[in-house]
Amino acid sequence: MVKGRLILSSFIVIAGLSAVVHLYPSEEKKIKKQFSLLAKWISVEQNENVFTIAYKMKSLGDLFTDKVNLKIPDYNLSGGYSRSDIISYTGRARLPFSQFTLQFYDFQIAFPDSETARVTVTGRITGKWLQGEGLEETRELEWILKKVGKEWLFREMEVAEVLKK
């Protein structure tokens, strides 16, 4: 009887703690959620229709601040870009792929101040060109996110030089 009560009360405590963690996510969790949305909206699935693409691109734009600074030398992208620039560039970049996925690993999140987050993360893209060839690239990325209202938005991104030719 005592054992049963002990198990039941342990179960209630664990369920309560899980509910609190789920309902009041930490800032780190909110930031990781933004990254998972970024990966979701950038991804290309087979036979996507026009409406899905438009929805994905609109949702992608909502993840960025009005002005975004990028430093991606490999793709000749450096400087300030507007939200619509990001949408149109991503839309064009997705076109030659029949499949495309972006995954993030090893998050290191720091908060220089309460409204800024600096995130160092490994980004891995895998894809398939329309011609059938595969693509696989991994880079270390340094992001700056800004808190606007209750949301964390992407403001800066730089590709770190892990290997320098």
Binding site: Y105, D106, F107, Q108, T120, V121, T122, R124, T138, R139, E140, L141, A160, V162, L163
Partner: peptide, 11 residues
């Protein structure tokens, strides 16, 4: 093995 941001994906 050369790490990126962590050790989940390495070169």
């Amino acid at each position: 093995t050369v790490r990126f941001a962590g050790t989940k994906v390495m070169l």
